[in-house]
Amino acid sequence: MKQIIDFIPLILFFVVYKMDPRTVSLGANDFELGGPFSATLVLMVTSVLVYGSLYLKNRALEKSHVVTLAAVMLFGGMTLTFHDEAFLKWKTPIVNWIFAVAFLGSQFIGEKTLLERMMGHALTLPDNIWLKMNISWVIFFILLGAANLFVAFTFHDIWVDFKVFGSLILTFLFVIGQFLVISKHIQTEEK
């Protein structure tokens, strides 16, 4: 359920982005709905609502939520201020690269890698496997960020489709690959 909630702003962004632009009247005010700029505003508002609700419920946000919300507000704000969607196109690659740096930095800070901190309660793996898996996430986030950047500025017509569905499919396939690799190394406790 938590993962679905995280996708609400992205799904609404996608829907509004793909809409034909139209004017919507609310009271005495008219608003443009459809296209990149109204979709950016929807992304920003729904992100605040979703992460604000999570914060009120849990009294904390995960670090990934904080990074994502900050990036949405920063790049979304610049997109709307300068009326240039190029700023929004940079959000996903930069967030991916921030995650890559976090995974890489975790190898040098603390006793466990970031992946082991996140999944160590559920899996018991040898240290060298945790390290290899962590490095593979670093490489994945670097490549995913580069792919998003390439598509955003080379294939303008499909960048939103790739951002929403391509990134999701690539992440899903990567996680399946990770599972196949770690399934050989899972240590079970002997009774």
Results as ranks from 00 to 15, higher is better:
2 K>Y: 14
2 K>T: 11
3 Q>S: 11
5 I>M: 13
6 D>T: 03
8 I>P: 01
10 L>W: 05
12 L>H: 00
13 F>V: 00
15 V>L: 15
17 Y>E: 07
21 P>I: 05
22 R>I: 11
23 T>F: 02
25 S>W: 02
28 A>L: 06
28 A>S: 13
30 D>R: 12
31 F>H: 08
33 L>Q: 09
34 G>D: 12
34 G>W: 06
37 F>A: 04
39 A>G: 12
41 L>G: 13
42 V>E: 05
43 L>M: 15
44 M>H: 04
45 V>R: 00
46 T>I: 02
47 S>E: 05
48 V>I: 08
49 L>Q: 07
51 Y>Q: 14
56 L>S: 12
59 R>Q: 11
61 L>S: 06
61 L>Y: 13
62 E>P: 01
63 K>H: 03
67 V>H: 06
73 M>A: 06
77 G>V: 03
79 T>L: 01
82 F>G: 11
82 F>R: 15
83 H>N: 13
85 E>Y: 13
87 F>N: 05
87 F>C: 08
90 W>L: 15
96 N>K: 06
97 W>K: 01
99 F>V: 00
100 A>N: 04
100 A>R: 08
101 V>R: 07
102 A>S: 04
102 A>W: 14
105 G>M: 13
109 I>G: 01
109 I>E: 02
110 G>S: 08
110 G>E: 10
111 E>N: 15
111 E>M: 11
113 T>F: 06
115 L>M: 12
115 L>K: 03
117 R>P: 04
117 R>C: 04
118 M>H: 07
119 M>H: 14
119 M>G: 10
121 H>N: 15
121 H>Q: 14
124 T>C: 04
124 T>R: 13
128 N>E: 12
129 I>F: 08
130 W>H: 02
133 M>I: 06
135 I>C: 01
136 S>P: 13
137 W>Q: 03
139 I>M: 05
142 I>H: 02
144 L>G: 00
148 N>V: 01
149 L>D: 03
150 F>V: 09
151 V>F: 05
153 F>T: 01
154 T>L: 00
154 T>M: 02
155 F>Y: 15
156 H>D: 14
157 D>A: 08
157 D>R: 04
160 V>G: 08
165 F>V: 03
167 S>G: 15
169 I>K: 10
170 L>Q: 03
172 F>W: 09
172 F>Y: 11
173 L>I: 12
177 G>C: 14
177 G>N: 14
178 Q>C: 10
178 Q>Y: 05
179 F>R: 09
180 L>D: 04
180 L>T: 07
181 V>Q: 04
181 V>F: 10
185 H>L: 02
186 I>W: 02
187 Q>F: 01
188 T>D: 12
